[in-house]
Design a protein around this nucleic acid. Structure first.
Lengths: 232, 232
DNA sequence: GATTATTGTCATAAAGTGAGACAATAATAA
DNA sequence: TTATTATTGTCTCACTTTATGACAATAATC
């Protein structure tokens, strides 16, 4: 199998990544479509015997997005006995001519560690993995039916993201290094799925003392030019 | 091996539990001491092939405490390659006369799912597992050196507990079904490791509308008797 | 029956948030 | 060149929440 040969993986354990991006309007995630099966799935993979789970997930995100140094955090382990139907994996292996004896371990029960990543949408070149022929951005409320329990994994990731948004101040990971206050507000609104009050939002963000204001203004629109900010 | 024979476990994956209790003054956790090795460790175990990770952890807590229906939640997966020194496990197996060929899988790399539990200290009868000769409560700031990365696991559990305390309102799980406002405040103070203001705390708790006040008062002290409350 | 320690509640001050007003200004239209 | 438009940065005032202290109520003890 391309890419998996000569590697030793830990059995019964995988990782799956909910990779969030923001296109200026909508919160989106990266979804793979597998060859000839019509299955949609989250980007994921297995853990090599001499690789930490974090390293494996980090490499997974790098391979699918080209990005290094991304905000990436595990959020939950999904450990139900029958969370993954082995029949799905069988069909994927068959579609790839990979249903060999040495790959049978992939049909076993799998526990998976869920990770979520926040990335700068503009910097990404999505790249399919060896099983899939397409990878693309899907708005969070227009996801296709995903394999196994991947829709639930996304749900849980969203809950955790919403909880951590204000507390950990991670929203800026979805934006370019320099951004306007309005862009930042849009990120919060997209994630929380609610409108926020402009003046209150601005006052709060500034009071947190985490933003650096740059004198260089963002111009090009027919109105007062807003400041650009970066994360301190 | 007593208790493990005839069972099929998932390799390379375990769980460990940080079981919190509150004795009225201090926040404590349950720690095991292993036979003849002097090793201290968190209660934990392996996951059977037809058992979810949650079920395994739940059973682990039941076996060590006798308690069912306990607040129990996973908080982190520890997946570093060398987080567990196989030499420790080897010594434990030797001390138990269990270092057989069929137990060699226990010497392999292990990823572990960390759980934390909050229990009513008074209801517990701590029970050692088959490898350990003692189990006992240790104050959170007087823990012995634990095996492997178990001290770090406790650290992380504490951080998560502190974060979730106010948000998820889980503090009452450390108390008997009926408790006074002062007891509840003591729990918060022990977990957060800081003094809280009595009137503010009381007003906040009552405003949350999660407590039921009972007319039956707690008596026995030389002052006005406080109300008893229970969780709604 | 007075004393003591602690409780339940209120009063006031301080801090934080909601909601709108208004001047400033970059591009566009006149 | 000047007026218009849309949006930004900031301020104000009302309202809500939190901090802090005061005080009466009361169960056991002296």
């Amino acid at each position: 199998m391309k890419g998996l040969e000569n590697k030793n993986f830990i059995p019964n354990l995988s990782f799956d990544c909910v990779i969030f991006g923001f296109n200026g309007k909508l919160l989106k995630i990266l979804v793979l479509e597998y060859h000839n099966t019509g299955f949609f799935a989250l980007p994921g993979g297995f853990i090599e015997v001499d690789q930490s789970i974090d390293e494996a997930a980090k490499k997974g995100v790098k391979d699918r997005t080209g990005l290094d140094n991304v905000f990436l955090e595990q959020f939950h382990v999904f450990g139900e006995v029958d969370r993954a139907d082995p029949e799905h994996m069988r069909q994927i292996l068959i579609a790839n001519n990979d249903l060999t004896e040495e790959n049978e371990w992939m049909l076993d029960r799998f526990n998976t560690v869920g990770y979520y990543a926040l990335i700068n949408y503009e910097e990404v070149t999505p790249t399919p993995d060896q099983f899939s022929d397409s990878i693309g951005w899907y708005a969070i409320d227009e996801l296709p039916d995903l394999m196994m329990d991947h829709n639930q994994i996304v749900e849980k990731a969203l809950i955790v993201l919403r909880n951590n948004l204000s507390e950990k101040l991670i929203g800026m990971n979805l934006l370019p290094p320099k951004f306007t206050m309005k862009q930042l507000q849009s990120v919060f609104e997209a994630i929380l799925d609610q409108k926020l009050r402009r003046t209150t939002f601005q006052r709060k963000m500034l009071s947190l003392d985490i933003l650096e204001r740059h004198e260089k203004l963002f111009q090009g629109k027919a109105h007062k030019a807003p400041y650009l900010y970066s994360f301190k």
